[in-house]
C-alpha cells in the first residue's frame, strides 16, 4: 500500500517523516481543544490510522523500523489520548456486576438505535451505493479479525480459548479460501472494485478510519484489553441480522453466490461467535478480572457508537448527494 495523502498538519508531518529512512526528525503541532466530534476529524483519524498501519502491513517504500520509532510512538500516544477522550464522550460509562456482563451486553445491543444502514442496502441502495459501502468497508475487512488478534497474547485460560475459537473461524480454519478477508475480496471483485489492501484509504472519510482506529487503539493498549473483547462481542452480536440484509441487497442487485458468500457466511458464523464472545470470552474474562467488567461494556458501547456514526455518515451522504466519493485519484 502507498502512503495516503495528508489531510492536515498532523497527518502531513507523519506522512512526510515516513517518507524518510528512520530515524528522521518528526515534529507535530500540539493539538488541544474539544474532542467531541473527533470521530470526524480527518487529520487526526488519518494520522492515527497511519501510525497504526506500521503495526500491520506498513507502506510501500517506508522503513519498517518506523514501527517502534520513539518519535512516532510519541505522536501516536498523543493522538490516542485525544481519540480515547472522544470515545469516552461517545460511549458513556456503564456500571455492571461481573456476573452480569453477558446479559448487560445483550441489553446494550438490544437497545442500540443506530441508523439502519442494512435496511437501506437491502431494499433501496443502487449498485453504485452498494459499491461505495463495500469500498469503505474494505478499509477494515481486508484485515478483518487482525485488530482483535492483538488480544490473544494478553488473555489466558478460558477467555483466551474463546477468542482463539472465534479467530480461527475468522481466518477460515487455516484455509485461505475460507478466510473472511479473502471472502471479502470476492465481494470486491464481483463489484469491479480494486481488492488491493488499503486501496480505498484515500477515499475513506475520518469516520471510516475511526472504525478501525477504535479496534487498533483497544488492541494495541494492553490497559484496554477489556474494551477490546467488549468491542468484539458487540461486533459479533450485531452482525448476523445486518449481514443477511447486506447479502439480500447484493442479490437484489444481481450478486451471485460467490459475491454474497461473505455475507451469507457471516449470518451463520456470527450467530455462533456472538454466543462465544458474550458468554465464554467476555463472561469468562469478567470472572477472571472483575475490575474490568465496565471496561468490557465501554468497548461494546464504543463499537456501537462508532458504527452508528459510520451508518449516519453514509446514509446522510446518499441523501444529500448521489455522486460517488472521489477524494483523490
Amino acid at each position: 500500500m502507498r502512503l495516503p495523502h495528508p489531510r492536515g498538519p498532523v497527518s502531513a508531518a507523519v506522512i512526510d517523516a515516513l517518507g524518510h529512512p528512520c530515524p528522521y526528525p518528526l515534529a507535530v503541532p500540539p493539538a488541544d481543544g474539544p474532542v467531541d466530534g473527533i470521530v470526524h476529524d480527518e487529520d487526526l483519524q488519518l494520522a492515527l490510522w497511519t501510525c497504526y498501519e506500521m503495526h500491520y502491513r506498513g507502506f510501500d517504500g517506508v522503513d519498517d523500523d518506523w514501527e517502534w520509532a520513539p518519535s512516532l510512538i510519541a505522536v501516536r500516544g498523543a493522538l490516542e489520548e485525544r481519540w480515547l477522550a472522544g470515545l469516552r464522550l461517545l460511549a458513556p460509562p456503564v456500571e455492571v456486576e461481573p456476573d452480569a456482563v453477558p446479559s448487560a451486553l445483550a441489553e446494550l445491543v438490544a437497545a442500540d438505535d443506530g441508523p439502519s444502514l442494512a435496511g437501506f442496502l437491502q431494499r433501496k441502495a443502487t449498485l453504485e451505493q452498494f459499491r461505495e459501502f463495500v469500498a469503505q468497508r474494505s478499509v477494515y475487512h481486508l484485515k478483518e479479525a487482525d485488530p482483535h488478534s492483538w488480544g490473544i497474547p494478553r488473555l489466558e485460560g478460558s477467555a483466551k480459548a474463546a477468542l482463539i475459537e472465534i479467530q480461527v473461524d475468522e481466518y477460515g480454519g487455516g484455509r485461505v479460501e475460507r478466510m473472511h478477508s479473502e471472502l471479502f475480496r470476492d465481494v470486491m471483485r464481483a463489484l469491479d472494485l480494486d481488492d488491493d489492501y488499503g486501496h480505498y484509504v484515500d477515499q475513506a472519510p475520518a469516520v471510516t478510519l475511526a472504525v478501525t482506529n477504535t479496534i487498533s487503539l483497544f488492541g494495541l493498549r494492553r490497559s484496554l484489553g477489556g474494551a477490546l473483547i467488549g468491542h468484539l462481542a458487540a461486533f459479533e452480536m450485531t452482525s448476523s441480522l445486518p449481514n443477511r440484509r447486506y447479502g439480500n441487497g447484493l442479490r437484489r442487485l444481481g450478486g451471485d453466490a460467490t459475491a454474497t458468500r461473505f455475507y451469507d457466511e457471516h449470518v451463520e458464523a456470527d450467530a455462533v461467535h456472538e454466543q462465544i464472545a458474550a458468554h465464554d470470552l467476555c463472561g469468562g474474562y469478567a470472572r477472571q478480572h472483575p475490575e474490568a467488567a465496565s471496561d468490557i461494556l465501554f468497548g461494546a458501547t464504543a463499537c456501537l457508537a462508532v458504527e452508528a456514526e459510520f451508518g449516519r455518515y453514509l446514509l446522510g451522504r446518499w441523501e444529500s448527494s448521489p455522486e460517488p466519493l472521489s477524494r483523490t485519484a
Partner: peptide, 12 residues
C-alpha cells in the same frame, strides 16, 4: 432461516 442452525433471528 437456516435451521437447524441459528441465524440470530431470535433477537427480532
Amino acid at each position: 432461516a437456516i435451521k437447524p442452525l441459528c441465524d440470530g433471528t431470535h433477537k427480532v
